[in-house]
Amino acid sequence: MMHGTDNNKSPNEEQRPGANPKAAHRLASDSPNCAEHQVAWEDEIRLNHLLHHLPDAPLPSNFTARVLSLAEQEADRRTPSALPGRWQSFTQVLLSMRWSARLAILSAIVAIGLVSVYQYQILARQEVARSVAEVSSVASLPMDVLMNFEAIQRLPEKSREVDVELLAALK
């Protein structure tokens, strides 16, 4: 019932029942004796007309603007700032300078870094030397002093300071 018998129909007409009213009318007029087919085709045409003339759903005028706003928010969310604010402004200032100024600033930064590393190494060596000196002074003590070392170690910090004085006196 959906598909007619007209061999001259285009493939599109063949696929979409009643999509082309002219073709349907032609089909109906070609077979006037077939009243049932004619009525069926007329129903198809009218149904198509009804469906095509259904009113559009209500849509607010700012729909596109709202969608674009959501999309922009999504784009901002997915593209985090590559650099923190202060670092970004620093790099912007740096990039705005001449190349010689940029080179001088970068050299100063590198020099400060190297000096800091050197100072840290000196401090670390001094700490090691102090530890070795303390251990060597303890090693020179007589064995009877070291017999109570564990008990002395367990004493509170304040008491230990007194004991250090005592050890010095014993020397």
Binding site: M2, P17, D43, L47, L50, L51, H53, P55, D56
Partner: peptide, 26 residues
């Protein structure tokens, strides 16, 4: 096909009376 047949059945009185011609065009 089944959907259209159902619609035609439900809308038969309207399809046959031609009231559809009076509907507003978009």
């Amino acid at each position: 096909h089944r959907g259209r047949e159902t619609l035609k059945l439900k809308l038969k009185p309207y399809l046959r009376t031609g009231v559809w011609q009076e509907t507003k065009s978009r």
